[in-house]
């Protein structure tokens, strides 16, 4: 692959949510995202994986600045957005669009598809109604729908078709970055692969960069160039897809990979089954966040949090004492 410049650079972002637990009890907070750093090169797909509640969606919302990070910096195409005001942010948002998990909820049920897909154009351009209609029709064709679908409402479509509409809307401004937050997890397995293929084709055609968020490693394997594994708000391992899948370093990644079903009932393999639940992010464990469930736990893990460092192979980072 040709070395290209980084489109997204995330440096040590932190986000905590306060929880109000009543009048008399003390204020607590959830560390949803804790010192997460990564960068995404132009034209690349970076996937964030982890179980629910690990902060991957929050990270996506921080990158699109739907949420404001408490600490850390985010550059998109060279512009630092973590403290940017709304007016300037609007310009950046032309280049960053989102695809949401729930294709039923992310399209306004009261609007015709034409207006749904054209909304980014209305916000950011001064095109005439005819020009908008033409672009919408073109975009619907690009995502595999037909131009006559523009006159319909969202409830008249199936889940897969709605997600195509969501993708058309995200693409209509020709953005550079698409943040896709679990774009296929609400869909049928048979539809999932269609949408993933569509996303891949579109990436080539429009030279898109993806931040892809998913809990499903088999989905991620299909689409990513690089993968970041999150656990309790922290990045525990990141690196090129091949390395993560062939040579996972972190025990949590190993456990995740061993949970991916293999479509062969006779296949034998070692399953790593984690004991216990994910600790509460309100009260995270000391030292390494994973030590309460780690099968290879050592004494040092309980006291000292491991830093993310480069493993033996290049570009492969892991936060583990092992």
């Amino acid at each position: 692959m040709v070395m290209s410049k980084s489109l997204v650079v995330v440096d040590g972002i932190k986000k905590t949510f306060p929880i109000d637990s009543g009048l008399l009890s003390s204020k607590k907070s959830v560390k949803a995202v804790n010192h997460v750093s990564f960068d995404i090169k132009e034209g690349e797909t970076f996937s964030l994986v982890g179980e629910s509640g690990c902060g991957k969606s929050t990270t996506g919302r921080l990158v699109t600045r739907l949420l404001m990070p408490d600490e850390g910096k985010i550059w998109i195409n060279g512009e630092e957005i973590s403290k940017m005001n709304e007016t300037k942010l609007r310009e950046v948002r032309k280049q960053v669009q989102m695809v949401f998990q729930d294709p039923y909820a992310s399209l306004n049920p009261r609007m015709k598809i034409r207006d749904v897909v054209a909304e980014p154009l209305l916000i950011h351009t001064k095109l005439s109604a005819q020009e908008r209609d033409r672009i919408v029709a073109e975009m619907l064709e690009v995502v595999g729908l037909s131009s006559y679908h523009a006159e319909k409402f969202a409830h008249e479509f199936s889940g897969g078709q709605r997600q195509r509409i969501g993708i058309a809307r995200a693409l209509i401004l020709k953005p550079k970055l698409i943040v896709a937050d679990e774009p296929v997890s609400a869909l049928d397995v048979s539809i999932q692969s269609q949408i993933l293929n569509l996303l891949k084709d579109l990436q080539e055609e429009f030279h898109l960069t993806y931040l892809f968020i998913s809990h499903d490693l088999s989905v991620v394997e299909h689409i990513s160039d690089k993968i970041g594994v999150m656990y309790l708000g922290s990045l525990v391992e990141s690196g090129p897809k091949e390395m993560i899948f062939a040579n996972p370093r972190h025990p949590y990644t190993k456990a995740l990979l061993s949970s991916v079903p293999i479509p062969d009932p006779r296949a034998k393999r070692e399953r790593i089954i984690l004991q216990g639940d994910v600790p509460s992010p309100v009260n995270p464990p000391s030292g390494c966040l994973f030590h309460t469930r780690c099968p290879f736990v050592m004494d040092i893990c309980k006291s000292t949090p491991p830093a993310l460092r480069e493993a033996a192979d290049r570009d492969h980072f892991v936060a583990c004492h092992l």
Partner: peptide
């Protein structure tokens, strides 16, 4: 612009 040719969605779409 190249058109992605596949809409094999199985779900029934109410058209009326």
């Amino acid at each position: 612009m190249e058109v992605v040719k596949e809409i094999g969605h199985s779900a029934v779409v109410p058209t009326e």
